[in-house]
Computed example of a mutant assay.
Amino acid sequence: MAGFETRDWDNAYENRGHIVGSTEIAEAWVKNAEAFRNLAKSDLNITTNDSGASRYDIFWPNDKPKGIFVFVHGGYWQITDKSTWSHLAKGAVDAGWAAVIPAYDLCPKVSIDNIIAMIATSINHAAKTIPGPIILTGHSAGGHLVATMCTTNTQLDHTVCERIKHVVPISGLCDLRPLLKTKINDALLLDWQTASALSPVLQQPIPNTRLTAWVGANERSEFLRQNRLLADMWHGLGANTQIIEEPDKHHFSVINGLEGQNSILMKTILNDI
């Protein structure tokens, strides 16, 4: 009698080992980010003076910004820093937006709850000085973090929520419960209760949420599943959602479109804003 398939959950959520040239790609991120910072008009390491020491970078367009474009980086809530991702502001800046890239302390030094609070604090702070609509994007764990900004449990100010026109988790991890079966959780320290409470798929989206769940078509099956799951769940709760699986993109290349204002990713993000 055939048994059920045994899943290797660590392998299911492993990206680096399944992407050819992953080390070189990661090294290029750092170089490209530094090169962009050296050329861009920016204000770096803005602090919000809260107890959690939230901080962020702003990259400015040449003219008055059309609004705020937020990008939150990934790394399973436990690796990398905002300085690795500066170049991903380029498409938004070239399109006339002020690009905000928040930093956050990493697990296990802090909890995911703490990280969510830090991201919200940075966005609230930036929104006080930059008028106009707000777009939220984030990659992988960053996709999770921007999705949490758009639930009824959000820590964003009400007036800030009203300005959000589009949220685009890219390869977002929006159901944390499967991670309980992985070594990733050694640093996250989640249990069933906290994983459920922090999963956007189990939360109510704020009214008038517009969500595009974006993922690379060549990504691991769990990222494809999670991407569909968030859009399907929130659609059933009244949000305006769409699912896009970008052809020929894997977990690391799927964010490349953020560098160009005319990429299909950026055109989709900015459509009708």
Rank of each mutant, 00 (worst) to 15 (best):
K41M: 10
V30W: 04
I79A: 13
V146W: 00
A40E: 06
N114Y: 11
V70C: 10
G21M: 13
S54C: 11
L258R: 01
N240L: 13
S54K: 04
D113A: 11
K267A: 07
S83F: 10
L44K: 08
K90C: 02
Q204D: 09
S42Y: 04
H158L: 08
Q155C: 08
M1F: 14
H125D: 15
W9V: 14
V168N: 01
V167S: 02
H166A: 10
I273C: 14
T84H: 04
W29Y: 08
A117K: 06
N114L: 04
T80G: 02
S111T: 14
N114Q: 08
V93C: 07
T48L: 06
Q242T: 06
T152C: 06
D113M: 07
I206W: 03
K165Q: 12
S253K: 09
D81L: 03
H18N: 13
A126W: 00
V100N: 02
W60H: 15
Q261H: 05
F69R: 01
Q204N: 09
Y56A: 05
R210K: 14
I68T: 12
L145C: 10
D186Y: 13
D50W: 07
L179W: 00
T182H: 06
L265R: 00
T121I: 05
L44S: 09
V146C: 03
I19K: 02
T268D: 05
L198K: 01
K267Y: 10
P131V: 11
W29H: 06
W29L: 09
G74C: 10
N45D: 15
G17F: 14
N256H: 13
V93H: 01
H125K: 09
I123R: 03
T6P: 03
K31V: 06
N11M: 12
A98I: 04
T129L: 09
R16D: 14
P65Y: 07
T151C: 03
P169W: 01
V168F: 01
T194P: 00
P61H: 09
N62V: 12
M266C: 12
D272L: 09
D50I: 09
G216V: 05
A141E: 01
T137E: 05
L265M: 14
Q155L: 13
A26S: 08
V167M: 09
L211T: 07
P169Y: 07
D81R: 07
R228C: 11
E222Y: 12
N185S: 06
L229M: 15
Q203P: 03
P178R: 11
L145W: 02
T129R: 12
W234I: 12
Q203T: 06
